[in-house]
Design a protein around this nucleic acid. Structure first.
Length: 279
DNA sequence: ACACGCTCCTGAACGC
DNA sequence: TGCGTTCAGGAGCGTG
């Protein structure tokens, strides 16, 4: 599922296609995704130029030339496919192809989402910070406003496991189940540890590993983007080498560890961890 | 303010 | 080309 690194990769793939281009045509094929489309979605977008396409948490953020802001969340199964210089007729839309953005360059950007956990919203620059999807959201994990102290304060006041605390978007934005599992593994911290029980050294290490695992994944996405786009234009999924996620009952990948990866359900979500080297 | 359960949805995995 | 059941999961929302 698209997590922060995937969304970042999608943004980087879409930016050259969409930035500075006008939305010549917008096709909306159903009334809602996880939430209803904004009223007048097609009309408000058609003819507008996209000045900038960027990312905030797991949202793709498009700044339009009239002050509107388009927010796109890929949910669990959302993906974007770029068709360069689309001909007429355009490629036939499948049952899960919910939105088409046709650019004035002739490119088609198609949003596909089988489970429809994704969403699209429209807001305005001046209202963006207070938008219900972005209000109260924490600092970007890769940004300057996220640091060891912020993490320490955020964890100290929590009365929940560190795994659950890190998934809370108010503490830090954009961390999902996979990368929380991976960051905890790389830090040697057990997911069931109480957030407030981590010492300064552990928090320092955890902060470092959160950044490193995201950087690694973004780098992997960047390199796969090139190959993937050449293949079929699809953005949003690429292969990762997860160290614990999805590896229940497999041997711990750490060379000097004899542990076996276990799965634990916390707050309704799977935590994968090595009970031997995560303490 | 915080913690937790419910909810949306459907493809994939699984059991028989 | 077997079919019914279970599960995963982001994040807003309601509840305690």
């Amino acid at each position: 599922m698209p997590e922060l690194p995937e969304v970042e990769t999608v943004c980087r793939g879409l930016a050259p296609v969409m930035e500075g281009r006008m939305l010549q045509q917008v096709v909306q094929r159903r009334p809602n995704l996880r939430t209803p489309f904004p009223a007048g979605f097609v009309e408000k977008l058609t003819g507008r130029r996209i000045d900038q396409l960027t990312r905030r948490a797991k949202y793709i953020v498009g700044y339009l030339d009239d002050g509107q802001v388009l927010l796109i969340h890929l949910g669990m199964s959302g993906r974007m496919t770029v068709f360069e210089n689309v001909g007429i007729p355009a490629p036939v839309a499948g049952k899960h192809d919910h939105v088409d953005f046709v650019m004035d360059s002739g490119a088609l950007v198609r949003f596909t989402d089988p489970r429809r956990f994704g969403l699209m919203e429209l807001t305005r620059v001046e209202e963006m910070a207070g938008h219900r999807m972005l209000a109260g959201i924490g600092p970007e994990p890769m940004g300057n406003s996220f640091n060891t102290d912020i993490l320490a304060v955020g964890l100290a006041r929590r009365n929940s496991p560190v795994k659950t605390a890190l998934l809370d978007q108010k503490l830090v934005a954009g961390l999902g189940n996979i990368y929380v599992c991976e960051a905890l593994f790389r830090s040697g911290i057990a997911p069931e540890r109480l957030a407030s029980s981590l010492n300064a050294d552990e928090i320092t290490l955890l902060f470092r590993e959160i950044r490193l695992v995201l950087e690694d994944a973004i780098a992997a996405g960047g390199s796969s983007l090139k190959d993937h786009r050449q293949a079929n234009g699809e953005l949003g999924y690429f292969q990762h080498n997860f160290r614990v996620y999805g590896r229940e009952n497999e041997s711990c990948v750490r060379e000097d560890c004899v542990g076996t990866v276990r799965r634990l359900v916390q707050a309704g979500r799977s935590s994968f961890y090595c009970p031997v080297c995560q303490k």
